[in-house]
């Protein structure tokens, strides 16, 4: 069995992170989740530097990205990912409280693969996170590792 590919969750709010993990736990995929608390940490993870310098090589199966984060915000991270040939294939799902049209438009323009508004109601939130985890972490086939970008 190959190594389990992690789900990267970028969420600066520890409570939201905890609630998301609680949801994933019900699906028994919580152990796959790596939580980053700001945009800079996400980039450190993806480029294997800083506290992630010694992590196992390989891209996450999916990145759940909050828009509003300290240091480097979600759109900035998204732009970096989609401008890097090695990171570009990683599916990026925006998971945010913002319903603003501008955020939606910008995210898709930068190459986001999905955009999910966090529901206020807990049960809906749980359901959304569960479904996202199952779809992107289990159902969806991630891009093959080390695949050469087709120019």
């Amino acid at each position: 069995m190959t190594t389990v590919k992690p789900i990267l969750l970028a969420e600066d709010n520890p409570r939201d992170a905890e609630l998301a993990l609680a949801a994933m736990e019900e699906q028994h995929i919580a152990d796959k989740v790596v939580v980053c608390h700001d945009g800079a940490e996400v980039l450190d993870y993806l480029y294997c530097r800083g506290i992630f310098a010694s992590r196992q090589q390989g891209n996450p199966v999916v990145v759940f990205l909050d828009l509003k984060m300290p240091k480097v915000d979600g759109l900035e991270v998204l732009r970096t990912i989609k401008n890097d040939v090695n990171l570009k294939p990683i599916p990026v799902v925006m998971l945010t409280s913002s319903r603003e049209e501008r955020d939606l438009a910008q995210s898709y323009a930068l190459g986001a693969n999905a955009y999910v508004v966090k529901p206020v109601e807990f049960h809906q939130f749980i359901t959304a996170v569960k479904e996202l985890g199952i779809f992107w972490g289990v159902i969806n086939e991630p891009p093959p590792e080390g695949s050469e970008p087709i120019e």
């Binding site: 409570r15 609630l19 609680a22 529901p119 206020v120």
Partner: peptide, 8 residues
């Protein structure tokens, strides 16, 4: 966000 937390 805080509302989601209260409910959650």
């Amino acid at each position: 966000a805080p509302l989601r937390h209260i409910d959650g």
